[in-house]
């Protein structure tokens, strides 16, 4: 079970002076159950890349397949394949349109052909996942919610379609730290309980390290690195800085301390782990 992009190219506004090659020769496979973070400088092509994962953009050259089914093809089968990939855009709350939270979340499942009973069940589960209480929110107007709550409604609208893959383009942009953590906690819970593959576009290296088990670094429309986040930061730190991607603070500090002669274990992912490791190395309580 996987999505495969093979040698894809994408050019925007072909044949005008605004022509822009946004992706060149990108090959990526995303398997079911993975958590993949995609990072890169602004304008490097991250959003363009993920929109090829469910056929919203068609490659100029190359192929996009889900389980060997051409995503961009016409017909019901290809459409069904595309709908296995849920897509949460930047500022997804801007896509909300219905009169009640329930109706908005139900839009996707209904389009997918669920019957009313299944729709109700899917909406209830999706709302639970994103931490919105069903009885409190289902009948409220989505436009009277706070920004963070609206974003959850939008994410629930995608989750309710029961996708096998969930692509999120900067899901935490513009949220306060607490809602940000909450959104990620919910996404991870989803991954655990349903085994959904998660593709996460982010500008935050901390998020990438903390949540992903694989990382793609995009630069100038090409995949620069593809591998385990910690390993990439360790081996290619200087190159990353050169392409405008920063190494997480925790890594920098840990590296610095190692240089100064402190013996710290590998694979420290966040502040808490670092604090623990330092205490251990120093023998503090």
């Amino acid at each position: 079970m996987s999505i495969k992009l093979s040698n894809i190219y994408h050019t925007y506004s072909k044949g005008t002076p605004f022509e822009r090659l946004a992706l060149q020769d990108v090959s990526v496979a995303i398997a079911k159950g993975e958590i993949v973070a995609i990072i890169g400088h602004t304008g490097s092509g991250k959003s363009t890349l993920v929109q090829h994962l469910n056929g919203l953009l068609k490659p100029d050259k190359g192929t996009a397949t889900i389980d060997d089914m051409d995503i961009t093809a016409k017909g019901q089968q290809a459409k069904a394949a595309r709908q296995q990939v849920g897509m949460v855009f930047q500022y997804p709350e801007h896509q909300i349109f219905a009169e009640t939270v329930f109706e908005d979340i139900a839009f996707g499942p209904r389009n997918k052909g669920f019957n009313e009973e299944e729709v109700a069940k899917a909406v209830r589960e999706a709302m639970e996942f994103v931490g919105l209480d069903y009885d409190t929110f289902a009948e409220r107007s989505p436009f009277q919610l706070s920004g963070g709550q609206m974003r959850r409604v939008a994410i629930a609208g995608v989750v309710a379609m029961n996708p096998d893959y969930l692509v999120l383009d900067e899901p935490s942009a513009g949220l306060d730290p607490r809602s940000r953590n909450a959104v990620f906690r919910e996404i991870m819970a989803l991954h655990k309980s349903r085994g959904i593959a998660i593709v996460l576009v982010t500008h935050s290296m901390e998020e990438a390290v903390k949540y992903a088990n694989r990382m793609l670094v995009i630069n100038g429309g090409q995949v620069l690195f593809d591998g385990e986040p910690a390993a990439i930061f360790k081996e290619h730190g200087d190159e990353l800085v050169q392409v405008g991607v920063d190494v997480p603070q925790v890594y920098k500090l840990a590296d610095l301390l190692r240089h100064k002669g402190m013996s710290l274990p590998e694979g420290i992912k966040d502040e808490m782990a670092l604090v623990k490791a330092i205490k251990q190395a120093k023998g503090w309580k």
Binding site: R82, F107, N111, V158
Partner: peptide, 9 residues
Amino acid sequence: KAQTARGAD
């Protein structure tokens, strides 16, 4: 695009 991804036609 967002609504197409949610199955809109």
